[in-house]
Write a protein that binds this DNA or RNA. Structure first.
Lengths: 266, 266
DNA sequence: GCGACGTGTCTAGTATATCGGACAAATAAT
DNA sequence: ATTATTTGTCCGATATACTAGACACGTCGC
């Protein structure tokens, strides 16, 4: 008491500077899992604690409970932990809840095998675009993509399709302003983006060149769910110098396969 | 019974659901997710609360937090919830942490495509056997298997392989006595089981007929991890009347493909 | 040898998350 | 129409989960 009072007098603001507010276990868990996912590699408990700003003792407590539940598992011998088997099963349950998911994956596989190109299954997560699964091209200059990394929607061809159920105002409210800034620094005019969405809606597909990066040409086609909404897209990620004839051929293939997966009209 | 014994390991306190004691949020979350997984279908919040023995108000609180975090998502319009996108991504991260996982899945796909039979990727979860992924045969009398359902290890061919790193005492300690009772009521003598494990270890594969049910003949071959341990198996689930010549052919194919996935010596 | 650092476990105290119960609104049953 | 259930939200009280800090131990580097 005297001690802390003295400390406060000597170092004014220390107490408030170290405002590490108490948090619920459930919140810690969510933050922890998200952090582990972003890291994409096993971590030690101490590092996790530092990364998520949680007390070490709390972090040990939570990690140990999650280990028990198989949601995490130890990796190697020096205290690294990563996602566990339960996560695999829960994720599997999520995917396969849609009874048509196996068909979608089969289509993904076949498109990749037949074309030799990179193919992605895409969707939204909140107001960001994510790749749910992908098959990377086998070529020497492979274009690969990370599953689960969140990307601003305006950077993507699929994003234009996935927003096509929204009107202009909804889109304006949905997309954070900074997401219009492309990776190369250019700002994508909002009107242009809205027009691209309208075009995608009308055409039933979307195409974009050198958007997220200078090297890729993306083709995207929607998979309609039972209510006719576009919640998933299939997407080719091609080298930007792919000949036009080939692109047209692949687009036709993509649209045909995607349409065959639609759940409306069976 | 076996099920609740395992459950008790992962979800301490479930069996004594009659006693309504205060619990941590993190425990509720774990119990909730496991319950949802076992249900294998979207549930309403009220039903979840009843199933896991939690107060309604608490359940709402937790479900809403998990919805925010995308670990759950609403399904349909009448308040059903099920696993969310975050689970898919975490599960994906788990699977693909092993850099060879895509090769394993590719092998699974090819085996299924070439043979037309049901193929499974199997492992252990605690002291139970689980199917991590599978490709069901396309035939009219399809033998399908549920991913994630826990099964007593003695019921399975793969189980004999997955225990082959243990000595007899370790196995005796590991397998709950009731797990030796087969689905048809027969008791599998422990000695017989231990001998089968020794045989599997020596042969490098395992074969079992009419074990888990009267209709299937299982062939299992191990995938060795970097330290030479068998933590995964590939497995054919064949109709029990498959001709011997065909079984021999498939076993050879399975062993060859599984061996090509071994991480030791490569 | 020594100090600096990280790890994993434990404990006591308090800020607060959980719980029971009440509520209005919506659905179902009679 | 009336009654009986269920749903989703809110609130005050208190049991306790979370936190700070100490501890013993192992491992560096020098």
């Amino acid at each position: 008491m005297t001690e802390s009072a003295t400390l406060e007098r000597i170092l004014p603001g220390t107490a408030t500077a170290a405002v590490r507010e108490r948090k619920r276990g459930i919140d810690r868990v969510i933050i922890l899992l998200e952090a582990l996912f972003r890291q994409r590699a096993p971590m030690r408990v101490g590092d996790i604690a530092r990364l998520i700003g949680a007390p070490r003792s709390t972090t040990y407590e939570i990690v140990n409970r999650l280990l028990e539940a198989d949601m995490l598992e130890t990796v190697g011998t020096d205290g690294h932990v990563y996602f566990g088997r339960a996560m695999h099963l829960f994720g599997w349950a999520y995917s396969h809840h849609n009874a048509h998911y196996p068909r979608i994956i089969e289509t993904l596989d076949r498109l990749a095998a037949e074309s030799g190109e990179t193919v992605q299954l895409c969707s939204l997560r909140g107001n960001k675009y994510v790749v749910l699964d992908c098959r990377d091209s086998a070529g020497p200059f492979r274009i690969s993509s990370q599953v689960g990394v969140e990307v601003p929607i305006p950077w993507t061809a699929s994003g234009r399709l996935l927003l096509s159920h929204m009107d202009d105002d909804a889109v304006r409210a949905f997309i954070p302003p900074e997401d219009y800034r492309l990776p190369d620094g250019r700002m994508l005019p909002q009107d242009e983006f809205l027009a691209a969405i309208a075009l995608a809606r009308q055409q039933g597909y979307s195409e974009s060149a050198a958007l997220a990066d200078r090297f890729t040409w993306c083709l995207a086609a929607p998979i309609l769910d039972g209510r006719g909404a576009m919640t998933l897209t299939l997407c080719f990620v091609l080298p930007v110098d792919t000949p036009e004839a080939r692109r047209i051929e692949l687009l036709a293939l993509l649209r045909e396969r995607a349409a065959s997966l639609d759940l409306v009209g069976n």
